[in-house]
Write a protein that binds this DNA or RNA. Structure first.
Lengths: 262, 262
DNA sequence: AGAATAGTGTCTATGAGACAGTATATA
DNA sequence: TATATACTGTCTCATAGACACTATTCT
């Protein structure tokens, strides 16, 4: 059988879906949009859309992220799976806050969309706390939803997400939880300058655990390349003034920040 | 803009490509097939093919693996991204040897195939040493190639692979190298029963390093759930008879097997 | 003063790695 | 006997986690 028979290949629609995560009020939250048309009309879904004929996958994800959150994207001219195994793309917004974008996984069950064969290349975006969703200016059609309520064990917590987006979201959250252990990605949830306490609150929100502030401080400042002091201090957390840091050059943490056992 | 407009979605071809890895003669090897037609005629490429209209992605990958290696696949009726974040599929062959199959990443650069827009969902398969490639019975059109020669730093090592398959292979090898650190996947390279020394040779081949046999033995037998003794012994390695083990139930290793530093 | 957060020091348990030494097979 | 591999014991160093203690702000 010929590997590519241009006259008879089965046609697919290809989309990108986005798991956009942020930390708001000590909770890990995901961006959801409300569907205005069938199927799953009125259900909450992940933002996403078609890949255009002349754009790459990461480019499409970056464009969708920009359309949904206002983050100006820094598109990648690279190959196909940008950030799938190597690291991801860095996205810059108006607030000069960094966001991280990487490919998550691809979902292609034949019946995942009731109308046609759709293969969705899901991407994971980690962003600092954004002002408020502004998807097309319609405030009621987008929201930040606490991730814990959406991927909880009991499905009685509320209406499930459209399509297989609940599964995609759960995969994205697990990827984020696991990846901040051995990479410096937790800083993608922080503003450009942040304190050790603020970074600790990110870890606590993403993992849903309480960490010892003193051991966390010693560990995070002792990992080479993770944090670089900016020289400034702040008292926005109350108490004694805290040093301000920015993300260092290291992408992989050595030693890693290990998640506490179950 | 409507999220799905059935009348006007850009059509894509969707394929699966396979990074099939095994350990042969103390080296990590990848399965390659020779292309018989343009483009890249005569070049070596990863095995793969179209996703059929009514099969899922993991199902297609499993079918291709079976067609190329003779491993009887155990298809997964699950969702889309089987094994992308959660763990992968187990494939059973005639030798009753286990193989592992998981989604790797998706490659969709607009010009990655010169003829049309093709999105390829790459999968990673880890298999024990197989008799010999039998792709369609044509022995000269398939081979096991040492991975080190294909992803070496100097591209003068030989002719590159077709399409972006060199990049896909490099991503797959790096995934395998990283994943055997914190999972029990290294046993997928072994026959059903194996010795600690054989498992150590797998780690050494995949990582390309030498490990201390004594520390390795203590560590691997001390990690709960990794290995289960079968009671038998063997002298096929020479020297004192070694205990035979099979893979235990654990999928995640605690503590992990850490790769030596650079 | 009291409370809150920042940051340091110290102790203990655990694991990684180096390596001596014993056990049991084959040539 | 020589040699190869299997396996155990022990030592040292690094890191994780518990927690006492000091520092500096605000109310």
């Amino acid at each position: 059988m010929s590997r590519y028979d241009p006259s008879a290949f089965p046609p697919f629609a290809v989309t990108v879906d986005l798991v956009v995560l942020t930390v708001r009020e000590h909770a890990l939250c995901a961006l959801l949009v409300r569907r205005g048309e069938p199927p799953f009309q009125g259900y909450w879904a992940l933002p996403g859309g078609f890949v255009r004929p002349d754009e790459g996958l990461a480019e499409a994800a970056s464009r969708e992220l920009s359309e949904e959150t206002g983050l100006r994207a820094h598109p990648t001219p690279g190959q196909g799976a940008d950030g799938a195994v190597a690291d991801g793309v860095h996205v810059v917004g108006a607030q000069a806050a960094g966001a991280h974008l990487e490919q998550l996984a691809t979902y292609g069950h034949p019946q995942r969309d009731p109308r046609m064969r759709v293969v969705s290349v899901a991407h994971l975006a980690l962003a600092p706390d954004l002002p408020t969703p502004r998807p097309g200016g319609d405030a009621s059609s987008a929201r930040w939803a606490p991730a814990g309520e959406l991927i909880g064990q009991n499905p009685a917590d509320g209406v499930p997400l459209a399509f297989d987006h609940g599964r995609i979201l759960a995969d994205g959250v697990e990827r984020a939880r696991s990846k901040i252990e051995y990479s410096s990605l937790a800083t993608a949830f922080c503003p450009p300058e942040f304190t050790v306490g603020e970074l600790r609150q990110v870890y606590e929100a993403v993992w849903g655990v309480a960490l010892d502030p003193r051991n966390f401080h010693r560990k995070v400042t002792g990992t080479p390349g993770f944090l670089v002091p900016t020289g400034g201090t702040t008292t926005r957390q109350g108490g004694r003034p805290a040093q301000l840091f920015k993300a260092g050059g290291a992408t992989v943490l050595n030693p890693p920040m290990l998640r506490p056992e179950a």
